[in-house]
Amino acid sequence: MMISVRNLDLTINGKTILNDISLDIQPGLWSCLVGPNGAGKTTFLKVLLGSARYSGSVKSDGVEVFRNHKRNVAFVPQQPQIPQGISVSEYVALGRSKRDGWGNESSQSREFIAKVLEQTNLYGMQRQQISQLSGGEMQRTLIARALAQEPDLILLDEPTSALDLHHQIEVLNNLQFLQKQGVTIISTMHDITLAAMYADRIIVMQEGRVLADGASSEIIHSPELRTAFDNRINVYTLDSGRPVVIARKDEKDER
């Protein structure tokens, strides 16, 4: 599923959120949107989902995304709605609705849900109330719901921001496993080091524009990445060759 974005603009109440974006997203790759808060990353994800109004053109397989109802795209929000009184398996089962029709889970679907729960390390917790889960379990449940959809494309808004280091890796490994099965992944991520570790491609955004776009290994050393963060980051390379990005503390901050 090839996505091509041409001259994408989006304004809300006179404020420009996305400004003249043009790019292509190849199927099967993991692209990561990186940039400071307010850069328009989440809005761009919503445009790619097809739920936001925009001007310009965003085509998936040649059809504008908001009109293409055949696509199977999953979305994992940063701040989830956590419904009360619903169990993990019921929540994950909601992801099957597009395939089976609402409220008609087939027995194959129930098998598939069991598989997804095993894959995300949630099997055995299916009867537990979702509102009583820990942050890490919650995030895995959100992703399990998206996986239950068997999507061709999965959009994730800061999938790791609520997690400790160990669980961050766990969630990202899950996504990498999915990517190996041919699913296209587009995520936003604040941790640029992790983004460079997992994503094939990094798209740097600032104030609604794309500043830089290319292979992760190149973008991470680019001056545009520093510009996007007001030159307040340092990029080091470890002995293993892996790049590490950390925030810089200026002298003037100490006063």
Binding site: P77, Q81, L94, K98
Partner: peptide, 11 residues
């Protein structure tokens, strides 16, 4: 029960 984006993604 889901967020608007999630329910949108389910059609």
């Amino acid at each position: 029960m889901l967020s608007d984006e999630e329910s949108f993604s389910l059609g």
